[in-house]
Design a protein around this nucleic acid. Structure first.
Lengths: 127, 127
DNA sequence: CGGCATCCCCGAGGATACTG
DNA sequence: CAGTATCCTCGGGGATGCCG
């Protein structure tokens, strides 16, 4: 988010696991940012597992979304390298969407988050 | 998000791992929602590892945040059961914040997300 | 069928000032 | 020091209409 330039002190460059609270937060914020649109997660879950869907299929699968939003979120996901898109130069037009390998690899991370959310039951905490 | 009432068909109730695309998305959206405030992640990373911080410490640790925002996000995290709060009835006032056990358990999930984000480099994808 | 453009609403988040 | 109240900005996202 704002200001990632709070340089770390003396780091052995090359180690990918070195983070300040700010840089770690920034990295995750970036990841979450890519997932933030109101419909992106739902889109992703319709695409996980190598599924290929055309625009109208997604539209039907997510009834509450508007065309504009669906396109917008799809394009953002595409731009972020999470989903891939293919246009068939036919008439009537056909466009298909699916997950990139990197996009697919989001699944476990999302699953971890879901597990965490569901683990909430016994949230006695550390009070 | 909108409409979680798209009931699943015939599920063996009791299995916690059964999700429709919509319900999985909703669950993760809930988790992400708790993390969404602009400062929450940064707050979390200052609290991970059992650290206890008082309000003014967090304020100094996150210079760009306003009092209002810091309090608001802290309170939301508290309400969600992620952070705990303790007020010392002294003067001048002192308030300390730390993560609940459940909050601490977010760390691996966040880490998975961070790993994923950093794995982006060779994002050739499944084009 | 799929996509872009326009207008509008609403709420998250910021700045500032005040209180106990 | 910690928290509250008020006001304002900004942009995400909804509705609608037109195009290839």
């Amino acid at each position: 988010m704002a200001r990632t330039n709070e340089k770390v002190g003396s780091l052995p460059v090359g180690e990918p696991a070195a983070h300040t609270p700010a840089s770690a937060a920034a990295g995750i914020a970036g990841a979450i940012g890519m997932l933030e649109g109101r419909w992106k997660l739902e889109i992703l879950f319709h695409l996980f597992g190598g599924q290929v869907r055309r625009f109208s299929e997604l539209e039907r699968a997510i009834p509450a979304v508007s065309q504009k939003m669906l396109i917008q979120q799809l394009r953002q996901l595409e731009q972020d390298g999470i989903v891939a898109r293919r246009v068939y130069p036919e008439v009537p037009p056909r466009v298909e969407y699916w997950l990139t390998d990197w996009g697919q690899s989001l699944c476990p991370a999302l699953d971890a988050l879901l597990q965490w959310a569901e683990r909430r039951e016994g949230r006695a905490g550390a009070g």
